[in-house]
Write a protein that binds this DNA or RNA. Structure first.
Lengths: 242, 242
DNA sequence: AAGATTTGGTGCGTTTTCGAACGGTTTACA
DNA sequence: TGTAAACCGTTCGAAAACGCACCAAATCTT
């Protein structure tokens, strides 16, 4: 197994030499829909480097069951920020939103490797910085964007992290991610569809016009993606690729 | 200058030995109201360990001037997460919201010290983890709390970081922090005052009943504070102190 | 002391989103 | 193939927050 063999962009970007400290510890792993990768308050077992599929970090209220999405992770990064930062558990829930597969490494192994290889550590910290920026902009989005804009933002972010133009997800699901009403998602979806930006079928949304979605999302989309390119050296946003 | 001489809680909590690597590089520094400690997109010059006063990290939209507060930092921590994570600049704005004073260290010095002393680095990373949790819960607050609840949450967080029970701030200021209308703050303030939780005078809010504010803030307050205690070993929330 | 400025209080109508509910359609599976 | 479940579309009134605008009171300036 070598670095070129993985489809994880972060591993590619750090180069074969840096990645080589991790490779022996990887095991391939399916990411099944809904699978919890980290459970709030419990020790983190593995860090996952997705190669396909999308995972999200879900912020939970202590009580009352309120929740919103704090960030998305796909093949551009890894889960387990907490471990990279030296912790062993986090108050958030991390779960698979779009199925795929990953390479994973045991948390204790990752700690050992990081401890020995500070060059590698600093690469992983760079991604932790990106997640922090992403979460900060999620806060901005929740505070200032309208439902329709939040939806456009989420679709763009998700689109960046998958291959196809089609997302398998329900309105119910989106409503939880965006922290809004299910019926609200239905309406916003219609608006976007009416403008020809997406096409929605039952349990499925197809991205038709990224530019248009960016126009709708406005300033809600872009900063974390720009920072990714600056820090990692690979374009994050789809239209910036080849 | 030794660690006991500082009023910064993080420096106290890490112990004199760990802090000793930083102390020679510190210079005292006033934190004047409105002073920018980090400017978006520009190299960070100093990391600040506040001893009095409160600083906030402000998340900016690329255009349109929208902004919200991503997190608060007082004497329980330090600014310059980005530097601790190995970066040199961030897209956020960090500025003084409540005047006070701090010890500061040049960013490049901090980088050197961290590079040499990994035990110290891991302490500082621990606080980076806390800021990340705080921002995540800010996102939750913006998404799910009502104005009045957001206000209660903000007052509690600020109260934790100062000595007195009195805050010098205007409705206008709060409206920007919370990402809401100025008139909305006025109304919410009246509600809280009507319940006897605070007392508001021109440009000034006095905290009367913390318990009551916690009841209003509900699940919007608490998680980052609990985590602080778990990770740093000192109580963050006021009512948990002696 | 007079005037300018900042800050707070209030009252519109409007927009956005909510909560709850119902019914129809598609899909899954027994 | 039929029945149950999941999903979507739509409706209703209500709540929350908005933008805007105006005035009063407190404070600062000179």
């Amino acid at each position: 197994m070598n670095a070129d063999a993985t489809e994880n962009l972060l591993l590619q970007a750090m180069g074969a030499e840096r990645a080589s400290a991790l490779l022996p510890h990887f095991e391939p792993c399916d990411l099944g829909l809904g699978m919890p990768l980290e459970t709030p308050g419990e020790p983190i077992e593995y860090a996952y480097f997705p190669e396909r599929g999308v995972v999200s970090v879900i912020v939970l209220a202590r009580e009352g069951g309120e929740q919103v999405e704090g960030g998305l992770i796909g093949r551009e990064g890894l889960t387990g920020q907490t471990v990279v930062l030296g912790g062993d558990r986090s108050p958030h829930l991390t779960r698979v939103q779009i199925p795929g597969h990953a390479r994973r490494i045991r948390a204790d192994r990752l700690r050992e490797v990081i401890e020995r290889d500070h060059d590698l550590q600093s690469w992983l910290l760079r991604f932790a910085q990106l997640m922090s920026i992403q979460t900060a902009h999620a806060a901005l989005a929740y505070a200032r964007l309208r439902l329709e804009e939040k939806l456009a933002r989420w679709l763009l972010m998700c689109h960046d992290r998958i291959e196809s133009d089609e997302l398998s997800l329900t309105h119910e699901f989106l409503s939880v991610m965006l922290g809004v009403r299910r019926a609200g998602v239905t309406v916003a979806t219609h608006t976007l569809e009416g403008e020809g930006l997406i096409r929605a079928r039952r349990g499925r949304i197809e991205i038709i016009d990224r530019r248009g979605l960016r126009r709708v999302a406005g300033a809600g989309y872009g900063t974390p993606e720009t920072e990714y390119e600056r820090l990692i050296g690979l374009p994050m946003s789809r239209e910036d690729r080849s």
